[in-house]
Amino acid sequence: MYSQVLDREVSMTKSIAADSDHLDVDADGATLRFPALWLRDNCPCVECRDPRTGQKFLGITDLAEDTAVTAVEQTDTEVTVVLGPDGHRSTFSRSWLAGNALDDGDPGDGRTERGKRLWLADDLRGRLPEGSWADYLADPAERVRCLDAVLRQGFVLLRDVPCEDGAVRDVAESFGYVRETNYGSLFDVRVEATPNNLAFTGLAISPHTDNPYRDPVPTLQLLHCLRNAVDGGETGLVDGFRAAALLRAEDPEVFAVLAGTPVPFAFADADTALRADRPLIGVDPAGRIREVRFNNRSIQPLRLPYQRIVEFYAAYRRFAELLVRPDLLLTFRLAPGDCLIFDNTRVLHARTAFADTGDRHLQGCYADLDSLISSLAVLRRKVDA
């Protein structure tokens, strides 16, 4: 809303503010206020920031606690402030100040519900966010669209990825790095004679997130379908953020119980022992949904006061019942060559049962959102250039 400030004709003026603790800037009839210490901390000059990296030279303890605005010079495009007690001069463009207005309008890092497009099953049924692997590789704009779908909607389905061993690694490395775990850099989801995880059976698997017993949890999961010649074995996805938001709207007290109760998740086999205590619904300091961890197979006994256990189990059941509502569960069948990329901190995945004698083989790996977000930002710069 403040971008119009660039169109205003403002002549050069100079005003003195007697040790003011803030700066007021007029922008299209509104007044933007910035604390003096905030201005000093964000000074863009070469004395304060490395011009090559943009990183700050000074820490907060290097800045005077009594920093004040002692003078202001303004043009139609820039504002220069003189800051006491050392007389340091800081120049800011008006567009930069407008873009960093202290109005809580920052969308943040895009990982909370604030930066997402929440969905129900009917919103996407018959119109999945998808793309062609060949187009994804050839067209930077198409890659931006697909990666943005993972960030905003929680997943994307890439079609016609070659049905070759290790191809899922190529998909992960197209935007980031494979996250190696005790399951290896890649893992095969198929029926095994002696499985160490129920995923490696033909049993139905209810909506869940993977590896909640890790901290940090793998934030992205990729599943590449190599073969799917079985009856059953359909894939299901649930927008966990939408489910958590519905729970908050329907029963805020239940939501608060789940957001405020650490749950012990664990996994162990002959070579591995992992544990992380995290709530089923994670929120940021502003109360916005940031993470869902839900995996009934991995929850260990909670050791809390009796009444808190009773409250938790009632809330846990309520959330579990909500997650399997037909209006939330999106179901579709993966075909050979389909590679599903999804946000493991948000989207719960499931599958229907299939016969152990069938031929169903998915190959998967884990990766992380930070690499995808970085690749997306760099690609956008190139596409927009």
Rank of each mutant, 00 (worst) to 15 (best):
P305Q: 04
G87I: 01
A199C: 12
T70E: 06
P264V: 06
S185I: 08
Q363A: 05
L304G: 02
W133I: 05
A68I: 09
D7N: 13
V5H: 10
E9Y: 08
R351P: 09
S90I: 04
T345P: 09
V69L: 10
L39C: 07
V5W: 10
P195V: 06
E164R: 12
V383R: 03
L97P: 09
E234R: 08
A68V: 11
L151A: 13
D210N: 09
T77L: 10
F342T: 06
V238R: 03
D370C: 07
T112A: 03
I341F: 07
R351W: 03
A27S: 08
T357S: 10
C163A: 08
G87H: 04
R380I: 08
V10G: 15
T357C: 13
D19Q: 12
D170M: 05
A149L: 05
E142V: 12
Q300A: 14
L329M: 03
D215F: 10
P85T: 05
D231E: 14
D103G: 07
R52Q: 14
R40K: 07
T352N: 04
D41I: 06
D76Y: 10
R111H: 15
A259S: 14
R293L: 09
G232Y: 05
E9M: 08
L220A: 01
L302W: 04
L120S: 10
D7K: 11
L151M: 11
A245Q: 12
T53R: 00
A286I: 02
A141K: 06
F312A: 00
Y366C: 07
A243R: 00
Y313C: 06
D148R: 09
G287W: 01
D277T: 02
V383P: 07
V189E: 04
D188V: 02
L157E: 07
Q153A: 09
P107A: 05
R214T: 08
A98K: 05
V5M: 11
Q221C: 08
A385C: 10
P305R: 01
L226D: 12
L302Y: 00
G240S: 03
L6I: 15
M1F: 14
Y136V: 00
D135S: 11
G166S: 05
R214F: 10
N196V: 15
S185Q: 13
G84F: 03
R152A: 10
G260N: 04
A18G: 13
D160Y: 11
